[in-house]
Design a protein around this nucleic acid. Structure first.
Length: 460
RNA sequence: GUGGAUGUAGUUCAGUUGGUUAGAACGUCGGAUUGUGGUUCCGAAGGUCGCCGGUUCGAACCCGGUCUUCCACCCCA
């Protein structure tokens, strides 16, 4: 015997119960996506490494799972390279494929590759696993599912608004209270411009993203450590301290960033978006959050992030506008915007909130007891009839003791049992037992249909 | 990738400064009850103490390595 079997770090098996819960999440998002007119696509688990590299920054490149070439993968490597121990150079020689890191970049590749078949604006959703060679933690896995909705080929801010509506709808259906945070890359660019540090926009945004977590002083310290002048740090302070309603914040910003055309454009975009939102009657909270800066560096307009109000687990949904993602695949001038729901974290939130407990997890509505070969034909006809009526029904496969069959039903939370043995067959009837009440009654075979319609599937 | 914790029946956890045969609860299975589950009673099975090595007369316990999970950074769904 070898040691116990196991699965790679950061990956998980899902039990039947977990899968029912997960499918509930997937079904919910899928229904909402469809409601807004989005259509599904899928792309392969692996992409050519050339499609993936350089899209997520240096950090992202490190987190890509690379797939070793098949066959004699060392044939193209000379001795010098082999002994050079340069991992990154080696990997580019021996790996030409990688596992997808997100769904957005493969989508961009898909759009470029299928441009002739696609009608724009193209609204698609995609629910598939992605892989990151991250160090796992709570709520961080190496294999996890994203549920992406994107619309590509339209600049309209109505798309951003629609995505906010979708987010609100999904989380209200899932009964998770959320706050939707929105920012705009152009405003962040404007701020960097205003500080005279345009080239350091990444350092600046990464630092101020941590404001919530580490506080103003630590952020300032980090900015200085990254090489920002004291003067710039000083100029940034009023921006970090902005208060008031969203329109008030935008007005103050407008004054401060009056010299930056990009910044003003961003402010204008936010004004329009929030004007849509203010009339939308959303259930969740939506706020402008200037410190929201994380996300991939391909965002160019709106940046969206959603957090659970009740459970601290990082963001459960995020996305934004990317003006030219398809450009890197040779197709310019196509703008897209989309968000991604993190199914695994949403699962953790629902679990933490106890919102799964009330879910009915029964595989079958009715279990027909198996008494043995003499009764099988009679039992099967009952099973068939119920299935014709769309009642989820199963026949216990073995003629086990009644006690065993009943505790099977009990542990699987099957609410109804049908007993059809000798006595019943003789009188052309069935004994139907309600497992939660413990009551049972005899029903003639001819009344089964009526009984089923009046009693079964009541929960749905 | 950096730093720090963790690992004992299926599950949650006990286990004395290193000392004989590693325990409990819950769960599972069997019986009390051969046509009645969820309650009760009785009984049983189930562990190479994550894995590999070292120290020791002797290791679940001490040391090293490794893997897992978790926490903080980095980054992110």
């Amino acid at each position: 015997m070898s040691s116990k079997p196991s699965i790679p770090k950061g990956t998980r098996d899902f039990s039947t119960e977990e899968m029912q819960r997960r499918e509930y999440i997937f079904d919910t998002v899928r229904q909402v996506f469809r409601l807004y007119g989005y259509q599904p696509i899928e792309t392969p688990a692996m992409e050519n490494l050339s499609s993936l590299l350089g899209k997520y920054g240096d950090e992202g490149d490190k987190l890509l799972f690379r797939i070793l070439n098949s066959g004699d993968y060392l044939s193209g490597v000379n001795d010098e390279e082999l002994t050079g121990r340069d991992s990154s150079r080696m990997s580019s020689k021996i790996c030409e494929k990688g596992l997808r890191y997100d769904l957005t970049v493969p989508f961009a590749r898909y759009v470029v590759q299928h441009r002739d078949e696609i009608v724009f604006p193209f609204k698609r959703y995609q629910i598939q696993p992605v892989w990151r060679a991250d160090r796992p933690q709570k709520g961080r896995y190496r294999e996890f599912f994203q549920c992406d909705v994107d619309v590509i080929g339209s600049d309209s801010l109505l798309n951003e608004y629609e995505l906010v509506k979708i987010i609100d709808e999904v989380f209200s259906r899932l009964r998770i209270s959320v706050v939707i945070k929105i920012n705009n890359r152009k405003i962040l660019s404007g701020i960097a411009e205003y500080l005279g540090e345009s080239s350091r926009i990444t350092d600046i945004t990464v630092a101020i993203d941590k404001l919530d977590k580490i506080g103003t002083d630590a952020v300032n310290e980090e900015l200085r450590a990254k090489g920002l002048s004291d003067d710039s740090v000083k100029k940034l302070q009023p921006l970090l301290a902005l208060e008031g309603s969203t329109p008030e914040k935008l007005s103050q910003l407008e004054r401060i960033l009056s010299e930056s055309a990009t910044g003003l454009k961003g402010i204008e975009e936010m004004r329009i978006l929030f004007s849509y939102i203010s009339n939308a009657g959303l259930k969740g909270k939506v706020e402008l959050d200037l410190t929201l800066a994380r996300g991939l560096n391909y965002y160019t307009g709106a940046i969206i992030e959603v957090k659970s109000v009740d459970v601290a687990i990082g963001s459960i949904c995020g996305g934004g506008r990317y003006d030219n993602l398809t450009g890197v695949f040779g197709m310019d001038g196509v703008s897209g915007v989309g968000v991604s729901f993190g199914a695994d974290r949403i699962y953790d939130v629902l679990n933490h909130l106890g919102l799964f407990k009330e879910m009915v997890m029964s595989s079958s509505e009715v279990l027909v007891i198996n008494f043995g070969s003499a009764e099988t034909a009679y039992s099967l006809s009952v099973v068939e009839e119920l299935r014709k009526l769309s009642v989820n029904t199963e026949l216990y496969p073995d003629a086990a003791k009644l006690k065993k069959q009943m505790s099977y039903a009990d542990s699987k939370k099957i609410p109804w049992i049908i007993i059809a043995g000798d006595d019943e067959i003789k009188s052309n009837s069935l004994t139907i037992k309600n497992m939660s009440l413990g009551t049972q009654e005899k029903v003639s075979l001819g009344d089964l249909r009526t009984y089923a319609e009046n009693n079964f599937r009541k929960s749905k």
